[in-house]
Structures are given as C-alpha cells and as structure tokens.
Simulated assay, not measured.
Amino acid sequence: MDYRQRRRIKVWGKAEYVEGDSALIERLRIPGYPAKVERAILFHVEALSENCSQHIPIRYSATEVEAMMAPLVARIEELEQKFVGE
C-alpha cells in the first residue's frame, strides 16, 4: 500500500512450501549469503489487481504535517500578536 501516491496492488495466488529440493534451493540461493538455506516458499501468482485510488486516503507523517502547518501557525501567531497589542 502506497498511501502517499494512493496506489495499491492486490496479488492473489498460492504459496508452495518446498523442502529437500536441493536443485531449487541452489537456484534460489543468494551468492555470498552466509546462512544455510534449507527450504523455500514459492508463490504462484494467479491474478493481480490495481485498485482505484478513489478510496485510498492520503496519509502524511507527523513531520510532514508539521511542515505544512508551519506557515499557518506563524500567521496565527502574527495575528494574535497584532490583536493582543491593540
């Protein structure tokens, strides 16, 4: 889910647990990865769907909201000072 870009992809399929297939494990092994790989899970994708962005809300982090609000907060403080001084 990408809330900022309002994108979502749904993936339907089945997972297959594989153990004891040394040829497959070797094909999937990452060169230089130090752990011993003993099993794998293969995902068989059967369908994909990109959803309409209409129903995905845009979400912002607290830092992003603070940055967007900073000019408004500054303007409010400016106006408060102006009216308090009168």
Score class of each variant (00 low, 15 high):
Val18Lys: 04
Glu26Ile: 06
Glu80Thr: 05
Leu48Thr: 09
Glu77Lys: 13
His55Gly: 09
Pro31Gly: 03
Ile30Ala: 05
Asp2Asn: 15
Gln5Gly: 10
Pro57Arg: 13
Ser49Leu: 14
Met68Pro: 01
Ser49Gln: 15
Val45Pro: 00
Trp12Gln: 12
Glu50Asn: 07
Met68Trp: 05
Asp21Ala: 07
Gln5Ser: 14
Ser53Ile: 04
Val11His: 02
Ala15Ile: 10
Met1Ser: 06
Asn51Ile: 13
Asp2Ala: 11
Ile41Met: 07
Thr63Cys: 02
Leu48Asp: 01
Glu19Thr: 10
Arg59Trp: 01
Thr63Ala: 13
Gln54Glu: 10
Arg6Cys: 08
Leu79Asn: 11
Ile30His: 02
Ser49Arg: 10
Ile25Trp: 00
Asp21Leu: 11
Glu78Ile: 03
Ala40Lys: 00
Arg7Lys: 11
Ser49Asn: 08
Leu42Tyr: 01
Pro57Ala: 15
Glu77His: 10
Lys10Pro: 00
Leu42Glu: 00
Ile76Lys: 15
His55Asp: 13
Ser53Val: 03
Glu38Gln: 14
Leu72Lys: 13
Asp2Met: 05
Leu24Pro: 00
Ala70Lys: 15
Ala74Tyr: 01
Ala23His: 07
Ala70His: 05
Val45Trp: 00
Val84Ile: 12
Leu72Asn: 12
Ser53Trp: 05
Gly32Val: 09
Ile9Asn: 04
Tyr3Glu: 03
Leu79Asp: 04
His44Val: 12
Ala70Val: 04
Arg59Glu: 06
Leu24Arg: 00
Glu46Asp: 11
Tyr60Ser: 04
Ile30Arg: 08
Met1Val: 14
Glu16Asp: 04
Leu48Arg: 12
Ala15Thr: 13
Cys52Phe: 04
Met69Ala: 14
Arg7Leu: 11
Leu28Ala: 03
Val18Tyr: 01
Lys14Ile: 12
Leu24Phe: 03
Glu26His: 07
Lys10Asn: 08
Gly32Phe: 01
Ser22Phe: 05
Leu48Tyr: 13
Arg8Tyr: 02
Arg4Trp: 05
Pro71Phe: 04
Val37Trp: 02
Val37Thr: 12
Arg59Tyr: 02
Arg39Met: 10
Trp12Glu: 10
Pro57Glu: 13
Ser53Gly: 15
Glu77Ala: 14
Glu64Tyr: 01
Glu50Val: 15
Tyr60Glu: 05
Val18Ala: 08
Ala47Ile: 07
Arg75Gly: 02
Leu48His: 04
Val84Asp: 07
Glu38Thr: 15
Gln5Leu: 12
Trp12Arg: 08
Leu28Trp: 03
Asp2Ile: 10
Ile58His: 06
Trp12Thr: 12
Tyr3Trp: 07
Glu46Met: 04
Lys14Leu: 10
Arg6Phe: 00
Arg27Glu: 03
Glu38His: 04
Asp2Trp: 02
Ala70Gly: 07
Ala47Thr: 05
Leu79Arg: 13
Tyr60His: 09
Gln81Phe: 01
Ala74His: 03
Arg75Ile: 07
Arg4Met: 08
Arg39Val: 02
Arg4Lys: 15
Gln54Asn: 07
Glu19Ser: 12
Glu64Met: 11
